[in-house]
Amino acid sequence: MHPAVECEGLSKTYRVGFLGRKVKALLPIDFQVNPGEVFGLIGPNGAGKSTTIKVLLNLVMPTTGKARLFGKDVHDPRSRESLGYVPEAPVPYEHLSGLEYLQLQAGLAGLTAADAKGEVTRVLDRVDMTRHAKLRIRQYSKGMTQRVMLAGALIGKPKLVILDEPTSGLDPLGRRLVRDLILELRRDGAAVLFCTHIMSDVEMLCDRVALLIGGSIHKCGPISELVADTRTHEVVVDHATKEQVLALLKPDDVARLEVVAQRVLFHVADTRLQDVLKALLNGGLTVTRIQSERIPLEETFMAALRTSNQPGGLE
């Protein structure tokens, strides 16, 4: 089976202004999204997330590299046969009603008239917009518009859904709906690719993420892996002095050492924990507590940002 999304050496240089000044939005990047996977593209504003998505939808022509959806080159309209997409801050045809907009989407998706009717009813109900279906979109609030756009992306039960900043600017209820929809899509075996700078969504939803900074992928992998790099453990040794502990361990292994009432507390990196414990126990000390501390994704994100000297926008 083909991956839902494949990018190989994809880069994009925009030309702006009269003189065609070059703006490198995307350095060559590679990644894949597999069927049934929720993939998060994360990064600060201007990292190139939307550009990546636009290349995948053939809205923007890549400068180098190839992109494929379900094994078909993105220049081929058939690559979009089973796709749902919601752009960043979408502005739909405001003179159409929500219902008419969805009928249009169903028609474009190639559904027959009978199927279209059922699908439109289903998705309207799913986003809880049946009541407002006949209202013109220009009369909708931002949240209502986003709901109808999401409904449009669900038409025809797509195998791949691409969402650009789906939760930004939504109220808690709207965010909740987006999260539920993403999880529902995954349960039904669809792949979801979404980009965001809101870390809590990522941790809650994604199977894998790619951290995009300044147009290149800084890190890519399962969330647990991204976080494991930076996992540390707090170790507590009872009835011991600082000197006793340090005598048994290499100085590099010990961080943030404190002594509190005959107890020594310090931090150890995930990779060194087993060796450190062996040394302590063999040396006759009593380890009374080990507490794993997961550095949240947000920290990883900020750390990556600092090392790349990029201004970051984070919510």
């Binding site: 939808l57 053939n58 309209p77 058939r78 046969e81 796709l83 449009g152």
Partner: peptide, 14 residues
């Protein structure tokens, strides 16, 4: 400008 075109050409349509 209003990016309505995104919602159309993201469908299987040339």
């Amino acid at each position: 400008e209003r990016r309505t075109v995104f919602l159309i050409v993201s469908r299987p349509l040339s």
